[in-house]
Design a protein around this nucleic acid. Structure first.
Ligand SMILES: NC(=O)c1ccc[n+]([C@@H]2O[C@H](COP(=O)([O-])OP(=O)(O)OC[C@H]3O[C@@H](n4cnc5c(N)ncnc54)[C@H](O)[C@@H]3O)[C@@H](O)[C@H]2O)c1
Ligand SMILES: NC(=O)c1ccc[n+]([C@@H]2O[C@H](COP(=O)([O-])OP(=O)(O)OC[C@H]3O[C@@H](n4cnc5c(N)ncnc54)[C@H](O)[C@@H]3O)[C@@H](O)[C@H]2O)c1
Lengths: 246, 246
DNA sequence: AGGCGCTTGTGAAGGCGTGCACAAATCGCG
DNA sequence: CGCGATTTGTGCACGCCTTCACAAGCGCCT
């Protein structure tokens, strides 16, 4: 019922580690560095110091240096990092030089926005197929693609070489869609539905839940308010305002 | 019948610490617990064990117990947790009993989807105002609200009691919008634009970058592929290219 | 050629988070 | 009323991550 998180992969062969196993925290920051580097490249910068790049990415410079050191030594002491080289390096590590094919399932409110988003194409991805279960949607053109029925998923995954699936269906359908994606051969899923997905080992799932983000912000608002306000905090039992329901 | 006092919180003022300072990691999981609890409540469950709730939320049960223990002791040994009580408790901690007012800036592709999303309303938030800089958009009705010009932001924040702002504008405009939001009195920002925002201390920013999520998945795809493939990894300097699918 | 200033790469320390394992507490039942 | 089954709450150890601080390396200037 769990997902992701393989145990430590012990060295199998004594082969050269062509693929350094980076810390998860580092991996999560590489895309941010990459975006900052692309911005720098556009402004004509040839090199950048760890301090400069760290500022552009919003992180500590020591952290950035340690992150990059995991990829190898691509900086020059006294000078900094070669912007173009570092871009290639990070894009290679992230596997972006392959322009991965992505399938989007659920062409509703959110799905439409995602399908029309050009920020994916510019950052290494191609949405190559759209799916929905609603007969009303199937067949409609959308941003150069035609919405297909979910039954064609398996076929499309093979034909288009899809490795990543995006779920933008209601929560109730998300697990079924995930099962379909896995069955079709997809091994990475980005889930926008507010629910926990169960997938086999070897399949990676990342979840984006906007309501959770807002709730975290709400907590900090609450905390900030309780500090500036009168110290007497109240107890939650008193049900004056109705609670949220769903 | 209410106290969330920590057993050992010495060395403070005599004031009661109505607000336990939870670990960030715990805070980030509370919304997930809350969602799982609402699901359980709908199925009629009165109580739930840490094991059961942990499974529903997709976490380790020990972790869940430790998280909840930070809120106080709201479980009963040998029985489990009272679902309704725990919901109230978490909603109180997260400050959701106030149904926070949210402003959405940028009514474009993504903004339309967000404005029409009912998942916010059902989880403690009210989008009370929509803003855009485009004269074309201003004045248009959208999901019961009228799009207003960004200049009216300051006024609306006061009138509507807005504490959270959502930025759904292009990256180039995001910093300016953030400045406007802060100037208007907003102290929490959810940013969808792919850029780093600079805000004064005391203002919280959370960022959602979908391309980053995909890139992290891409990394794992790349890693998985490099394991199953021929061990001889290549160096990225060689500017070759390989495409998936065809 | 040599020195100087700048920047990287990293050892070490500390903090945070996780998960195990178990004592304490509670309920149900005979 | 006591006992066993069950489940919480938590002490503890371990590993990951962050941050500091600095030696090593590089280029430039004199
Ligand atoms: N709209 C937003 O801004 C937003 C924000 C955050 C999260 N979400 C989440 O994203 C998901 C989609 O939201 P939405 O507003 O687009 O909903 P929606 O109802 O507008 O769209 C859902 C789409 O999924 C399709 N669908 C349903 N079952 C399917 C199945 N089994 N296979 C394929 N397609 C199926 C429907 O036909 C519909 O077109 C929801 O889980 C929602 O909670 C949406
Ligand atoms: N569309 C998506 O699915 C998607 C996904 C991920 C991230 N994003 C990001 O979200 C942001 C919005 O994306 P989009 O596709 O909706 O873009 P969009 O161009 O469709 O919409 C942007 C809107 O912002 C408005 N705007 C511009 N400058 C403004 C300002 N100074 N003040 C107020 N409003 C202003 C524009 O008038 C427009 O209506 C972008 O940063 C994009 O990278 C979008």
């Amino acid at each position: 019922m769990s997902q992701q998180r393989q145990g430590s992969t012990p060295a199998t062969t004594g082969a050269v580690p062509a693929f350094p196993d980076l810390p998860e925290a580092t991996i999560a920051r590489l895309p941010e560095y990459l975006r900052a580097l692309h911005n720098l490249a556009e402004t004509g910068s040839e090199t950048v110091s760890s301090e400069g790049l760290a500022a552009a990415a919003g992180v500590n410079s020591a952290k950035l240096r340690k992150d990059l050191s995991h990829l190898g030594s691509y900086g020059t002491r006294g000078v900094g990092y070669d912007v173009a080289l570092l871009i290639d390096q990070i894009e290679y590590i992230l596997g972006l030089d392959q322009r991965r094919a992505v399938a989007l399932v659920g062409v509703g409110n959110l799905g439409h926005a995602l399908a029309g988003y050009d920020g994916f194409a510019s950052r290494g991805f191609r949405i190559v197929a759209l799916f929905d279960a609603d007969a009303e949607q199937v067949g409609k053109p959308l941003n150069g693609l035609t919405v297909r029925h979910i039954d064609e998923l398996g076929q499309a995954v093979v034909e288009e070489g899809i490795t990543i699936g995006v779920i933008a269906t209601p929560a109730g359908a998300a697990q079924a869609v995930a099962d379909d994606l896995v069955a079709a051969g997809v091994t990475s899923i980005l889930n926008f539905a507010p629910c926990v997905l169960s997938v086999p080992a070897g399949v990676d799932v990342r979840k984006v839940d906007l309501a959770i983000e807002l709730q975290i912000l709400s907590f900090h608002e609450h905390r900030k308010a309780s500090l500036t306000a009168i110290p007497g905090g109240r107890s939650p039992e008193a049900g004056n305002q109705e609670a949220v329901g769903s």
